[in-house]
């Protein structure tokens, strides 16, 4: 029964993805009709300047947003884990967690209103575009990074840092040689999460971007609305391949640690 459910669930998750990838190699003009093996849609994808441009823009925005989010979320996670009960901690925590639970349309609308308000005050700056999308994504992803970093810091053995201090390390040296390397996996995971989040977000990006900020999801969304083109299949196949390589690598790296905890409970 649960095996049947597991098979059904996995098929439900995977069937559309596999069909999508399979038909990316079809020569037919209509998506999801088989017309013999061909790589023509990958060629068409590369020749589609709008999509290539949007992809490059999205990669830049995602890189910048993820990096900024690691700084922001790292700081927030640090304050929440290490600053004890300072005044306003509950509010600080609530503000940091709000982007995690707010509906996308509300986040998008609120950040657009912020951009408009700033534009009104400064008479025109910042222009809505890739820059505003980057900032919006960094704020959003920063909340996810904060959760990861806070959890990681809370789970660290305080004895490690104490030992370093007892041996005469300065606070800066303790941070650099003990704390930072131990938190690094959370920062790396947060960066990847932020990158993916930015590369996948349509709603917030549509709100805060102007005509100059067409990211890949915005371009794909408008293609899907007009009717699916086979280029989207090819694009999805490429995305899946990238994700599979990343996941496979992560699974191999994490494997011994994931299998280990048996004595729990």
């Amino acid at each position: 029964m649960r095996r049947a459910a597991l098979c059904f669930g996995l098929a439900f998750l995977w069937l559309p993805v596999l069909l999508l990838v399979g038909y990316a190699f079809s020569a037919a003009r209509l998506p999801f009709t088989w017309g013999g093996f061909s790589l023509r849609w990958f060629g068409a994808l590369l020749a589609n300047e709008r999509l290539v441009e949007a992809t490059l823009l999205s990669l830049r925005v995602a890189t910048g947003a993820a990096s900024l989010a690691v700084l922001l979320g790292g700081g927030i996670g640090w304050v929440l884990a290490r600053h004890g009960r300072f005044r306003g901690r509950a509010l600080f925590g609530a503000l940091a967690a709000a982007p995690l639970v707010l509906p996308e349309v509300v986040t998008g609308l609120s950040l657009l209103l912020l951009a408009v308000a700033v534009q009104t005050l400064t008479e025109g700056w910042p222009q809505r575009g890739a820059g505003t999308v980057l900032i919006a994504h960094a704020l959003l992803a920063g909340s996810y990074v904060a959760v990861l970093v806070q959890a990681r810091l809370a789970s660290l053995d305080p004895a490690l840092e104490e030992a370093a201090r007892d041996l005469g390390a300065t606070p800066a040296a303790v941070f650099r040689t003990i704390t930072l390397p131990l938190v690094a996996p959370a920062l790396a995971a947060g960066w990847l999460l932020g990158f993916t989040l930015s590369l996948d977000d349509v709603v917030v990006a549509s709100f805060v971007s102007g005509p100059a900020g067409t990211t890949l999801p915005i371009a794909v969304f408008s293609m899907l609305r007009l009717g699916l083109t086979p280029e989207v299949n090819a694009l999805a196949a490429l995305l899946l391949l990238t994700a599979a390589i990343c996941m496979g690598g992560a699974a191999i790296l994490l494997r011994p640690r994931v299998v280990a905890p048996k004595a729990e409970g």
């Binding site: 999508l20 969304f221 699916l228 999805a236 899946l240 996941m247």
Partner: peptide, 15 residues
Amino acid sequence: PFWTGFLPRMGAWIG
């Protein structure tokens, strides 16, 4: 599948 991009998967369902 969660990491493969949400829009392409919705595109697959359209197909």
